[in-house]
Amino acid sequence: MVTFAILASVAVIGALGVVLLRQPIHAALSLVGTLLTLAVLFVTLQAHFLAAIQVIVYGGAIMVLFLFVIMLLNIEHERKEVQPWLRWAAYGVGLVAATGLIVGAMLDPRQAPDHAVVRDTLQGGHPRLIAEVLYGEFMLAFQLVGVLLLTGMVGAVALVQRPRPQRTSAMIDERRKERASDALEAGGR
């Protein structure tokens, strides 16, 4: 109970940080904090494998990517709002959404399962069990994810390519002239 309270508070504070912090680096680091907290929460929910994956993939790969881009592009902090009403509208919608979801969750009290039973069943989210389901029941989904990752790789590479200059005949002539003048200069010296 206490564990959960502490962990939940940390997660929420981290989330608020993402939203409210000015500097992008600060916000990204705040998100990392939240993600790690979430990983711990996974552990309490008998999903040890998932927690590990969360840390490795999210924290180790995705956030690193984010930080690289932020630093590379030298993103500054934002300027003034153009539409102030949007902020308040967003808060309003958010409040409604949160209340609604919480109410929805509360309205459906379930019998908390027996911890021992769950531990035996899930075995801490053992990789073997996940693999059995993934390669069995969800085989199609697994293959599709593979395709998706391939597409992502190709797309990412294609997106960051610098456009190659077109080699028109005019440019080839110009290039030859440059090389000739360079050779002349070099030969002259």
Partner: peptide, 28 residues
């Protein structure tokens, strides 16, 4: 209980949604 976790999830989700609407930089 499960409700607590779901409540936390709801809170985080709405904070994220508000963030999407409020922030002006694409990265954020």
């Amino acid at each position: 209980g499960t409700e607590a976790y779901v409540t936390l999830s709801a809170v985080l989700f709405t904070i994220g949604a508000v963030g999407v609407l409020t922030r002006r930089s694409a990265i954020m």
